[in-house]
Design a protein around this nucleic acid. Structure first.
Lengths: 214, 214
DNA sequence: GTCTATAGCTGGATAGAC
DNA sequence: GTCTATCCAGCTATAGAC
């Protein structure tokens, strides 16, 4: 009877749900007012509580940003891991870019927090980062299904995909000026990578690279 | 003798130089503390003046941001318009991407203000935008020297280039993980565009497009 | 855990002497 | 144009009753 109660209590669950409600309200505000355009007063009002109650769950505003990052990264990883309703490795790759761009353009504030480093003194915690790494592993897998395994090509891929999403978010939000280039971009990328033979099943040695020096 | 003095006075010149000195100090602070990480007090201290003196030259902090944008856009346009010390249209294209990425990575705060839209309520004034348009015209010209004239391909180009710069700034500042992919990227891009024949000198009609629907 | 009340500070912006 | 001095709104964060 003197034992302390188990940590996985219904209390814990309630606390967790209140915690999540605050993060939800924070994201709602960020979508409306911009990532840095809201205060703890605003947050408390939207969550239907008061500022000290916020501090019962978070030690600082930065901790709230970190929770927002963690949640967004988790959603991102889950979304990108969902199965694709197309067949063929190339079609899956195309669909993944469409999904990525849709993820980015649908919530610009989320895109800003996850993929641009714009908040003054904010750094995401390491475990939040794990989600992003998992998502990158998924992309690597989809690339490998297309015979792309070289690190150089993976980097080129991330540049191409983020460039499309970035231009779409920045210069044509709500439109399709860049997303409609996705299929063509994938064709360009695959054609290029498959035309630089590297004996993929023979090992990691490089053959006939014309690559940039330095 | 009762005539008012001409407006292009030495007074104007002195006022202009004081104005510029404040903008210089603002950029110096932005580089050190982040684009939004400084106050008017900080700015005055670094400029060696006081806050009310700042208000003798600018009506608000947003007006300072606009002046910063204008100056950065002007420098950008000038930098990208400088001649390239290489020969051949392809080599010029490669050199222009190197120059662009160097411009972006050397001052991340400047990159953030010019190419990412991250400040809460800030919109650059139209004349500041003129510089950016001039720079885009330069890129269009360099592309046309390589036979690239289609709007779709220009958009693909901007996505590719900004993607490289963005990844370099965000994930490997100070390194060359993405900038070393520039030449390969240009080869990939040109090979792709030149393999989609469009009878460039025959007019704007499209031939054999396999392009994305919708 | 949640509140009322407020501390302590910093932000942008101004008044008015010189 | 430049200063000293200050206003006031807003911010994050906390004290202490319940």
């Amino acid at each position: 009877m003197l034992n302390s109660p188990p940590t996985t209590d219904w209390r814990e669950a309630r606390r967790q749900s209140a915690h999540d409600a605050i993060v939800d309200a924070a994201w709602s505000l960020a979508d409306d007012m911009g990532l840095a355009g809201w205060s703890l007063r605003d947050l408390a009002r939207r969550a239907g509580i008061t500022v000290p109650t916020v501090y019962a769950y978070f030690d600082s505003k930065n901790e709230i940003y970190d929770a927002m990052f963690g949640r967004a990264a988790s959603i991102f990883a889950e979304r990108m891991a969902e199965p694709f309703d197309v067949e063929g490795p190339r079609e899956i790759l195309v669909a993944s870019v469409h999904r990525f761009c849709e993820f980015c353009t649908s919530h610009p504030a989320r895109y800003q927090l996850l993929f641009q480093r714009t908040l003054p003194g904010f750094e995401p915690s390491p475990d939040s980062y794990a989600h992003a790494i998992a998502a990158l592993a998924g992309a690597r897998h989809r690339l490998s299904l297309n015979g792309i395994t070289e690190a150089r090509h993976v980097d080129l891929w991330t540049a191409l995909v983020t460039g499309l999403a970035d231009q779409q978010v920045a210069n044509d939000p709500g439109g399709d000026r860049w997303t409609r280039l996705i299929e063509e971009s994938v064709v360009m990328f695959l054609t290029h990578c498959q035309s630089t033979p590297l004996a993929p099943s023979r090992g990691p040695h490089r053959v006939g690279t014309k690559g940039p020096p330095t």
